[in-house]
Each structure stands twice: as structure tokens, then as C-alpha cells.
């Protein structure tokens, strides 16, 4: 599979803290890759590095062959990379509709306002927010805010989605919905890199999983390989299991 996103030796430190230590990664076109690790492992930092929010100290990140590390966030977005935020960040003084329009107008599609409005309405309908399109986002609860985040990322027309914990705090049924959604996106040919704590989702939808531990990549492989990797079990799954029952859904 041709690789769409390719990172080599991505390194980023904040003061004395090494948040990313020579991380390599690859996401192929139409591939769903999971990114797991404990809190502070560097997952969100990696997403920030890819999207241009933080410039890496060293290493290279290319998207479709183009180097990203010197580009501003908006250039990267227009190349076709969209992201969600772990804590949903809607534009508070825009309506929900306008929130969804932004990525259409300024993202890779560069739609006109009228076209963007029509498309945004359709997308909001599809995630179940159609009825609230003309309200400001403070009318949404946390689950709906996550949906809005997702709608924004979907609306952009990006080829690569970076999803930062979109399932945190969802009920089992909602997680099921999210899984169906992600599988649908994959069928449409979108590449996805997802940070996720819900192991059931990761093991179910990801073709490949990357494990970060204190800024370093300690394992990479299929869900089956990862679930059986002793280093991962010690560093991550083990900790979870010890913490409370574990999640064996992937077996």
C-alpha cells in the first residue's frame, strides 16, 4: 500500500521533557491506524506535530510526498489533513451550521459559501445534528459536541483524518455507532490515524496499531500482534489489566 503519511524520526521536546523521541510512522491511503499509549505517552503531541500546531525539533513528516514540518497549520489542512480535538473546540460565536461550514470553505475543497452551507446541512443531518444547525454550539452536550467535531473533520474533504479520542465517555451503543461510522469512512477510501483508549474500538477497526510509551514507539503491528506483545502488555495493556479487569475483546 502506498504510504500517504510518512514520519521519520519525529522528535519534540518541551523544556526538559522529551515528548516525542525519534518516532517513525506510516499511514497508507485508505488505512486505519491506531495510536495507543498511556496518558502523556505523546499521542496528542504527535497529532499536533503532524497538523503543524507544534513544529518538531527534528525529523520529517511528509504527506503525499510533501514535507509538512515547515508548513503552517492552515497549509497542512488545505493539503487534506483534518483533525478532531480531544476536548471538543467549537467556535462559540458561530452557529453549529457555520462551525461545520468552516472546514468546507477553507479546507481542501474550498467550497463557496452557498455550496458549503448545503453540504454542511447534509453532513449535520447524517450525524444527527440537523435539527440544531442554526443554534450556537453551547446548546450541545458533550456527545453532540464530539459529533460536531467529527462532522467538521468529515466536511473538510480531507484524505487523512486524525481522530483524537472521539469515543471517550460514550455509551456502548454510541461506540457501536462510531465503529460503524469509521468503517464506512474507510470504505470511502479515507486514511485514519486514531488515538483511542477504548481497546474494543482499536482492535476492531484498526489494521495496524502503533504503541507509544514516554514519547517512544515501543511496538507496531496488527491488533493480534500488539495484543500479544510482551513489551506492550507490560507498558500499557498490563497496566490497564492490573488497574481493572482488562479488555480482552480482541481475542
Amino acid at each position: 500500500m502506498a504510504s500517504l503519511l510518512r514520519g521519520r524520526g519525529i522528535t519534540k521536546s518541551f523544556g526538559g521533557l522529551l515528548a516525542l523521541d525519534r518516532v517513525d510512522l506510516e499511514v497508507g491511503a485508505g488505512e486505519v491506524v491506531g495510536l495507543i499509549g498511556q496518558n502523556g505517552a505523546g499521542k496528542t503531541t504527535l497529532i499536533n506535530a503532524i497538523t503543524g500546531v507544534h513544529r518538531p525539533d527534528a525529523g520529517s513528516i511528509t504527506f503525499d510526498g510533501q514535507e509538512l514540518t515547515r508548513l503552517a497549520p492552515d497549509r497542512i489542512a488545505r493539503l487534506g489533513i483534518a483533525r478532531t480535538f480531544q476536548i471538543p473546540q467549537p467556535f462559540p460565536t458561530l452557529t453549529i451550521l457555520e462551525n461545520a461550514m468552516v472546514a468546507l470553505v477553507f479546507g481542501p475543497r474550498a467550497s463557496g459559501l452557498a455550496e458549503a452551507e448545503a453540504r454542511a446541512r447534509t453532513i449535520l443531518e447524517s450525524v444527527g445534528l440537523g435539527g440544531k444547525a442554526d443554534l450556537p454550539p453551547d446548546h450541545l452536550n458533550i456527545v453532540e459536541l464530539r459529533k460536531l467535531e467529527l462532522a467538521r473533520a468529515l466536511a473538510s474533504g480531507a484524505r487523512l483524518l486524525l481522530l483524537d479520542e472521539i469515543n471517550a465517555g460514550l455509551t456502548a451503543a454510541e461506540i457501536q455507532e462510531a465503529i460503524a461510522l469509521i468503517e464506512g469512512l474507510r470504505r470511502q477510501g479515507l486514511a485514519i490515524l486514531m488515538v483511542e483508549h477504548v481497546m474494543r474500538v482499536i482492535l476492531r477497526v484498526c489494521e495496524r496499531i502503533i504503541v507509544l510509551h514516554f514519547g517512544r514507539k515501543i511496538a507496531e503491528g496488527t491488533p493480534r500482534e500488539i495484543a500479544g506483545d510482551p513489551a506492550v502488555i507490560t507498558a500499557y495493556l498490563g497496566a490497564r489489566r492490573a488497574a481493572g479487569g482488562g479488555d480482552r475483546a480482541g481475542r
Binding site: D74, V102, G107
Partner: peptide
């Protein structure tokens, strides 16, 4: 308006 609300999110949205 997006810049007024949140510069960071405006940027990663392509603004």
C-alpha cells in the same frame, strides 16, 4: 469570526 473564536482551531481548519 473563526479567528476571533479560536485561532488554533481556525488554523487547523484551513483558515
Amino acid at each position: 469570526a473563526t479567528i476571533h473564536d479560536n485561532e488554533l482551531v481556525a488554523g487547523v481548519s484551513g483558515v
